[in-house]
Write a protein that binds this DNA or RNA. Structure first.
Length: 478
RNA sequence: UCCUGAGUAGCUCAGCCGGUUAGAGCAUCUGACUGUUAAUCAGAGGGUCGCUGGUUCGAGCCCAGCCUCAGGAGCCA
């Protein structure tokens, strides 16, 4: 059996005269002799030239867009313009036919909306090929970064019993019969008879379990699927998404911010050096797309310039209180251009405010810290002022919140007091509180939405286009 | 969930004030051409106008309800 060479390797080769075998999917077949073939190893196609005068007519007819073919031939310098090398085909074998009458992907521009409805085939387009190679590179860089720093990768449970984290609506997990569940004497569904002997849900965060592990390994991270049953219909929310959650003992909020910033710069830097061609294509795609927008709505920087800017510049760090001052004194606020005007300290920031800070005022990623306790979660460490907590959110242009994190409240009395105030049942989270009873220490962590990172890095604008098979309200096809 | 907009050929879209046989480009098919770059040229086929009901002599177009999608908001990562 002849060994297959990946197209990326062939395109980089100068071994003219040697024989190679490539296998891939036909992108176009031009002029009855030029096959543009792609195997996913690179965004670039290789051109295989068929001698149509000496090739069976019935074989030529089967070389159609989308067909899987194997080509064996001689690697030669290309006679035509547009590519350096090509393959002079000696033999072409159709591995899998593709009926052009019914194959949805045509050699033309398709709308992202159409491709979303054909998510099973969209990997075969340039755009989605590039997006998912970048996604892979980012995921790999995440593990490489933490591994180099000595973090332990924890797999926290996907099915959880706690319904107490307050991170959003949860999906129920049950084996009970939906139409006729067993009931107790009070007429309520009797979860004692369920698979786990209690009500369970899909996880909304691995943080609480992550904290337990950090109290032994020092530094850990999780990277896994997360589920939110919110009826969210936006370009930045999914019902099933992947989240990275580092948790570090002996880190205060500043250590936490430093880690998050270095981390983001590292993974983006990895893609800048390893996925150059994909980024160039995605950057070009973005330019084309923005041509339809009015001048003042277009990005100032190209995709690669934007990513280089992020890796080369410090993120802006401001407290919530300073941010409120900036917003309050902004022209937008004074001219009542905000839909929600900033009046008093304590209000939650709306998307328009975050966007103003990031895109108009600072024009770079911003880390907002020390939010009012009333708009943040129970586990965040209370500041000396008694009003604010050691929270930090990282906001980036075009996406908004990329990271949400905090220094955790390690003082048992303050934590339980806060839980009581917010109606979080302490008895259900006894195991979490045990970390505050047995060797508690200063610690911090954050959560980063992986798809939002992919969005930012690829310049795509809809989160459903950076995950293979998006799960959103009314959509679980594929 | 709320606001706004959209749904017409495989895809992208046009369709006038409600009027006779619903169009274009691309794709597909047939033929020609053969160093092309989303090849080109000629011809052909292709429609449940999102669904249901209503108004009307007559509805792709008007009205009501529903479904789906997109953008924005909320929830958040």
């Amino acid at each position: 059996m002849v060994k297959r060479t990946r197209i990326k390797e062939v395109l980089d080769s100068t071994a003219y005269g040697s024989e190679v075998t490539i296998k891939g999917w036909v992108r176009t077949f031009r002029n009855n002799q030029f096959i543009a073939l792609n195997d996913g190893s690179t965004i670039n196609n290789i051109q295989a030239v068929v001698d149509f005068n000496n090739t069976d007519e019935s074989l030529l007819k089967r070389i159609t867009t989308g067909a899987a073919v194997s080509v064996t031939g001689e690697l030669v310098e290309s006679l035509g313009k547009g590519q350096k090398v090509e393959i002079k085909a000696k033999s072409v074998e159709i591995l899998g036919d593709c009926d052009p009458e019914t194959y949805p992907i045509q050699p033309k521009k398709h709308s992202l909306e159409f491709l979303r409805e054909n998510a099973h085939l969209r990997f075969r387009t340039n755009t989605f090929g590039a997006v998912f190679r970048v996604r892979h590179a980012l995921a790999f860089a995440v593990h490489e970064f933490f591994n180099k720093k000595g973090f332990v990768y924890m797999h926290t449970p996907i099915i959880t019993a706690s319904d107490a984290e307050g991170a959003g609506e949860m999906f129920k997990v049950t084996t009970l019969e939906l139409g006729n569940p067993p009931r107790n004497e009070a007429g309520e569904i009797d979860f004692k008879q369920d698979f786990f002997g209690r009500a369970t849900n899909l996880t909304v965060s691995g943080q609480l379990e992550g904290e337990l592990a950090a109290m032994a390994f020092g530094e850990i991270y999780t990277f896994g699927p997360t589920f939110r049953a919110e009826n969210s219909n936006t370009t930045r929310h999914l019902a099933e998404f992947w989240m990275i959650e580092p948790e570090m003992a002996f880190y205060d909020l500043v250590d936490n911010m430093n880690l998050a910033e270095v981390f983001i710069k590292y993974v983006i830097g990895y893609v800048l050096t390893n996925n150059r061609e994909d980024l160039e294509f995605l950057g070009q795609r973005l330019v084309e797309e923005e041509k339809q927008k009015p001048q003042n709505e277009r990005s100032e920087l190209g995709l690669i310039e934007k990513l280089e800017f992020v890796t080369n510049n410090d993120f802006e760090r401001v407290t919530y209180t300073e941010a409120i001052d900036i917003l309050k004194n902004s022209k937008q606020n004074k001219n009542k251009k905000f839909q929600y005007l900033i009046e008093d300290w304590g209000a939650d920031l709306q998307s328009e405010h975050e966007r103003y800070l990031v895109e108009k005022h600072f024009k770079k990623p911003v880390i907002l810290t020390d939010y009012p306790k009333d708009i943040k979660s129970f586990y965040m460490r209370l500041n000396e002022d008694g009003k604010t907590v050691r929270a930090m959110d990282i906001l980036v242009p075009g996406i908004g919140e990329l990271v949400g994190g905090s220094q955790r409240e390690e003082r048992l009395d303050k934590l339980t007091k806060r839980m009581d105030e917010m109606g979080i049942p302490t008895e259900e989270l006894w195991w979490y509180l045990d970390t505050r009873r047995f060797g508690a220490c200063e610690h911090s962590g954050f959560g980063l939405g992986f798809e939002r990172l992919v969005l930012f890095t690829t310049g795509m604008t809809n989160i459903r286009d950076v995950i293979a098979f998006p799960r959103t309200p009314k959509n679980a096809e594929f």
